[in-house]
Every structure is written in C-alpha cells, then in structure tokens.
Design a protein around this nucleic acid. Structure first.
Length: 228
DNA sequence: GGATGATCATCC
DNA sequence: GGATGATCATCC
C-alpha cells in the first residue's frame, strides 16, 4: 500500500493513475491542501479553479495551462466535479472553448469536444456550500469513455450547435439548446468580446462561449459507476 | 483574448 | 430550487 506524499510523478498508465486517485478518496481538501503547502481559501468565490489545481498536483498532471490533455502521455483528461450528498453533480462541466470562426468543414471526428471527452478521469468532490471547503472530501474516482449512445448524443448536440455557429446564429443559441451538451458564455466578464459570424455572413463581436456538459448527463455516468 | 482551472449568483 | 447567463484567477 502506497502512502500519500508529493511530488507525484506523471502516471505511466491508467492503472497507476486510478491507483493514485483511489488513495485520495476519502481525504479532505484541508488535508490535501496542507500536505501540498497550498493554503485553503475561505471559499471558492475568487478561487474557482482551486480544487482542480490541487487534484492535478496530487495526481501528477502536467500542471496548469497547457492546451493538451492533463495526462498527455496516456491520453486522459482530468475533471473534478462537485457533487451533493446523493452523488449528483452540483454544476455543469466545462469542456472547452467553442470556436466561433473558421469552422467551415469541421467535423465531429476531429473536433476538440470529442478529443477532450475521449477518456476522462472523473473525481467527485463534496461541493455543498454548507460544508467548509477544508472539510469537503474527495470521492471515488471513475475512469470513463463515452458509450456509443453517449457519443451519439454528444455528436448530435455538437453538430446542431456548430451548424448554428457557422450559419451566423450564435446569438440565438441559449443554454437550452442541446440535450446533453450546451453552449454558454465563458469569459472573464461581460466586456470580453471575440469574433463570430453574423446573420448575414459578416464578422460580428460576441461574448466568448464554451461547451458544457449538462448535469443529467454527468449525473447518469456517475450513477452508473456508483451502482456497479 | 484565449487557454487553463471552474463556480457564482441572479432570475425565472 | 435550479438553470442560465455572468464571472473569477492566472499565464502568456
């Protein structure tokens, strides 16, 4: 039985990654933060990515802001997901920024969403705001790939949303579009603007958007895991 | 601004 | 109460 200590080397295979993730299950964020020398913030309001960064350290992820998978060598992406006491997600899951221009000819097979979701290590973390951040516990990890049905759902939604973007309808897209995948703003604030295609094919400025997984989708894949 | 990490908080 | 639209920090 291995014990908990830092630094953690990048995992060489999935089994190693899962083993390390299982060691973290049951630990509190306070414990993991202290051992990592990371001060635990009072809450997440100004540190929304703190848990993600903490778990990256503890799992040996290629830290920080590289535009590739968290575990590039073994092709796995890490997602922490806040859950309630029933194990259901408290938030949608950000996947990636949505490209709003230069999309003619893009196809599902080679898109960023599919690549990001090809293989994901889900790490549930207690997320109820009534639980002090330091006391919240890490849950049992799940190494996941989309089933055929899940991939079809994702593909349908992605194609619908990308069609609207390409056809200059981005401003008409709301978070209600898509069955399992939605498009929502993803920016520092309301002042952030980026190029997109307008209704008449012209270039317009609009808020940057991101793809997010809706809660029922992640709830189902987590539930499947916990029932097995 | 856009990529990384996401959650907040208002409105319905 | 919960989802949608808004927002926070950091790096380059």
């Amino acid at each position: 039985m291995e014990s908990l200590h830092l630094p953690v080397s990048p995992p060489e295979n999935e089994a190693q990654l899962l083993e390390q993730a299982r060691l973290l299950a049951g630990c509190s964020l306070g414990e993991l933060g202290a051992m990592a020398g990371l001060p635990v913030p009072k809450d997440l309001r100004r540190d929304k990515g703190w848990i993600g960064i903490l778990l990256e350290m503890w799992l040996g992820a290629s830290a920080g802001s590289k535009p590739e998978q968290d575990f590039a060598a073994i092709g796995v992406e890490l997602k922490t997901i806040p859950i309630d006491r029933q194990g259901r997600p408290l938030e949608t899951t950000f996947v990636c920024v949505a490209p709003l221009t230069g999309n003619s000819g893009v196809v599902w097979e080679t898109c960023h969403v599919r690549h990001k979701l090809k293989r994901v290590l889900w790490v549930p973390v207690e997320g109820e705001r009534t639980i002090p951040l330091a006391e919240r516990r890490v849950g049992s990890p799940l190494l996941w790939s989309p089933s055929e049905e899940e991939e079809m759902q994702l593909r349908r939604d992605w194609e619908e949303l990308m069609d609207m973007i390409v056809l200059g309808q981005v401003e008409r897209i709301t978070a209600r579009h898509g069955e399992v995948l939605q498009l929502r703003p993803k920016a520092a604030n309301g002042q952030a603007l980026t190029d997109a295609i307008g209704a008449n094919g012209e270039t317009i400025l609009t808020r940057p958007r991101g793809f997010y997984l809706k809660k029922p989708f992640t709830a189902a894949l987590l539930a499947r895991h916990f029932l097995l």
